[in-house]
């Protein structure tokens, strides 16, 4: 009851400002819209770890010095950085998804949802950005430090794990945060393949209500808020991990 009153008050207040938020009082449209917010947040929450883990693996491959590891990853990174995310998504969804469907014998058996493809495509796209950032960080680690680690009997993998990545992660953190912000923005391409994230849900509402301006205000505020939180968490992590005297 309390909640209903607050919603009513908000609609009334916005109505006086000339903004039409009447759909909030209806059950169905308000539900779609709320689910849209949740889907976007869920999408962001799933894609961020995917992009970070894959980005780390890519960076390790790029700096491994082994051609059979670095060349395919380099090719993939260049391809994904220089083609639109939307085209990659459509390609994956229309081509790879169909191929998978044919392999498992019909679309009804295909376990991969549009949601999966958005996570995969956006995650890998941003992973390529992370990989470049982390690679830059790994190459910036002073060679004397690597020699010291080798002198202490660290293996190639142990050097990567205990020396290069901890330092590289710190120095590439600002670039990684930028990548995450573009990740948040990229999740909107999901609406091309009918993932019901917030842009898709907003379109559903404004085609019924013709209140584009009102929905846009909320959309811009919502994305500003997520990106503000991501940037804040990023600078918090940066401060937490800072090594006094190392200048990172």
């Amino acid at each position: 009851m309390q909640d209903m009153n607050l919603t009513g008050l908000f609609i009334d207040l916005m109505g006086r400002l000339g903004l039409n938020y009447e759909f909030l009082a209806t059950g169905y449209e308000a539900q779609i819209w709320r689910d849209g917010f949740i889907t976007t947040l869920y999408l962001v929450a799933v894609t961020i770890p995917v992009s970070l883990i894959v980005g780390l693996i890519f960076a390790a491959c790029l700096t491994s010095g082994r051609l059979w590891l670095s060349a395919p990853v380099r090719g993939f990174v260049e391809l994904t950085r220089n083609t639109p995310t939307l085209v990659q998504l459509m390609f994956s969804f229309l081509v790879l998804n169909t191929v998978v469907s044919n392999m498992v014998g019909g679309a009804q058996n295909n376990p991969l949802s549009p949601f999966f493809w958005v996570v995969a495509v956006v995650g890998l796209h941003v992973a390529a950005l992370h990989a470049e950032a982390i690679r830059g960080g790994i190459e910036a680690v002073p060679s004397s430090m690597i020699e010291a680690a080798r002198g202490m009997g660290f293996s190639q993998f142990e050097i990567l794990r205990y020396v290069q990545i901890p330092l590289a992660f710190r120095s590439s953190l600002p670039a990684i945060v930028n990548g995450l912000i573009s990740l948040v923005k990229s999740t909107t391409v999901g609406n091309a393949i009918a993932v019901s994230e917030i842009t898709y849900a907003s379109i559903m509402v404004w085609t019924q209500r013709d209140n584009v301006v009102e929905m846009m205000i909320v959309l811009l505020a919502f994305f500003s808020l997520i990106n503000f939180v991501v940037a804040r968490v990023g600078s918090w992590v940066e401060r937490r991990l800072a090594i006094p005297g190392y200048g990172l």
Binding site: T199, F223, S224
Partner: peptide, 19 residues
Amino acid sequence: VQIFRNAPALVLIFATTYI
């Protein structure tokens, strides 16, 4: 700058198209 730098390109294209 603060508002539009954080906005997804797709949202802005939808906005200009429909407004």
